[in-house]
């Protein structure tokens, strides 16, 4: 089983910071327009969200694992609900590599695998180095082309 790049924790923490910031602005707006909110309460809420977000990010990193097995891509992830998914290569429709602004700054990239399914139809593996993402994309593409199915659905 392969783990993600440790830097992914920074991305997830950054997402937590973003949530905390939005929450802070919302509380400030409530303070301004609806009813006064004590600054200490505001700070406490923001700090709590930050702490929870950081713990969540660290735990998620510990849990996240994936593997290319002989017939399927296998993933384990999730803090609250642990999900183990197997995506057979025959079912892979197409493969993306993606990265957003924060991922780019951290030198990370994601691979997204699409199936024709209705739920879990796109499976994302975040936190890969760009080289590894490319490699995985190529491997998955070759495996998808090689594994034959008359109809993908």
């Amino acid at each position: 089983m392969e783990s993600l790049n440790p830097r992914i924790r920074l991305l997830w923490i950054a997402q937590g910071v973003l949530v905390a910031a939005v929450l802070g602005v919302v509380l400030a707006a409530v303070d301004q327009w609806v009813r006064p909110v004590p600054t200490a309460a505001l700070g406490a809420v923001v700090a709590l969200v930050l702490a929870a977000g950081t713990l969540y990010a660290i735990r998620l990193y510990q849990i996240w694992q994936f593997e290319l097995q002989d017939d399927a891509l296998y993933l384990e992830r999730g803090v609250v609900t642990l999900v183990e998914t197997a995506v057979p290569f025959v079912r892979v429709q197409h493969v993306d590599t993606q990265f957003g602004p924060i991922e780019r700054a951290l030198g990370l990239s994601s691979v997204v695998v699409y199936t024709a399914g209705s739920r879990n139809a796109d499976v994302r593996i975040p936190g890969l180095t760009p080289d590894r993402a490319r490699e995985l994309q190529d491997a998955l593409r070759d495996l998808a082309i090689e594994s034959e199915a008359d109809d993908a659905v």
Partner: peptide
């Protein structure tokens, strides 16, 4: 532009 996406779609699909 900032966020990049490279997509590969096999012909079979």
């Amino acid at each position: 532009v900032v966020a990049r996406r490279d997509r590969e779609i096999p012909y079979g699909r």
